[in-house]
Computed example of a mutant assay.
Amino acid sequence: MQAKDPVGQFVHDALVADRSREEIRAALEQAGWFRDEIEDAIGQYATIDFKPPIPVPRPQPTARDVFIYAVLFTALTYTAIYLITLVHAILDLRMPDPADAPYIEFRATERMRWAIATLLVAAPVYLWMSRYVHQRVEKNARARRSPVRKYLTYIALFVSSMTFLGDATYLIYEFLQGTATLRFVLKAATVGIVTLGIFVFYLRDVEYLKGEK
């Protein structure tokens, strides 16, 4: 326990002095501490009747966790973006619009090549890292409590949900304007499917983490 944590130190000393958790909560509330601060401090110690009080495991970020999950979510980002790019390029080639500029076909071909090259690198890296993380979590209880994993998972949920909502909003706007072509609808559907898939996958991951507590 760190000396810079006065509430945690107080809870520790109070438990050693055989004060009940209810008494500790009441005293801290009367002193002006917020309820979430109080519960976080009390939650540092197990409810086992033992002296001195037993600290519960607290997740700690490590450089290894930062590296692993940064690579994982970067590969996920590249895979999602260039999968969408590939499908959009194919639609531009297969469903040309008479209003398209002459160079659209050339640009679509270039985007396809770049997207394929990126996917051949990013997708295997993402799949391999996902498998590695899953095995690591299954074998190591500490890995399940990684705060880096938690924060990046919620960032993935936020970004994917905001992208899906923006995509749906733009699709509805185009329909209301009467300018939604079949190609546009298919492009919007591609974005929606990819982002919704990411959201559902990592939402299940969050639920799994909750079940581990």
Rank of each mutant, 00 (worst) to 15 (best):
A141P: 05
A141R: 13
E105M: 09
T118E: 07
T163A: 15
R113C: 08
Y103S: 05
S160D: 04
Q135A: 15
T163C: 06
R107E: 03
P102G: 06
V137D: 09
F164V: 14
M129D: 05
L171S: 06
T169C: 04
L127C: 07
V148C: 00
Y151N: 05
E110S: 11
R145G: 12
Y103W: 08
V159R: 03
V137E: 15
I104G: 00
M112F: 02
T169I: 14
F164Y: 15
L165M: 13
A168N: 05
M112I: 04
A143P: 08
R145D: 07
P147Y: 10
R107S: 06
E110F: 03
D167Q: 07
Y126C: 11
T118C: 01
R136S: 06
T118H: 00
A99I: 08
Q135W: 06
R113S: 14
L171F: 14
L119P: 04
F158E: 04
T109P: 00
E105S: 09
P102M: 01
M129E: 13
R144K: 15
L157I: 10
V121M: 06
K139V: 04
G166K: 11
T169D: 11
E110G: 00
G166P: 07
Y151F: 12
A143K: 07
T153S: 09
G166V: 10
L152M: 14
I104H: 05
W128V: 14
T109V: 06
E110D: 04
W114C: 00
M162K: 11
F164C: 12
L157P: 00
Q135S: 12
P98N: 05
P124G: 10
L152F: 15
L165W: 08
E138L: 12
A168G: 11
F158M: 15
S161F: 14
R142N: 08
Y103N: 10
T153F: 05
V159I: 09
R131P: 01
Y103I: 07
T169F: 15
P96M: 03
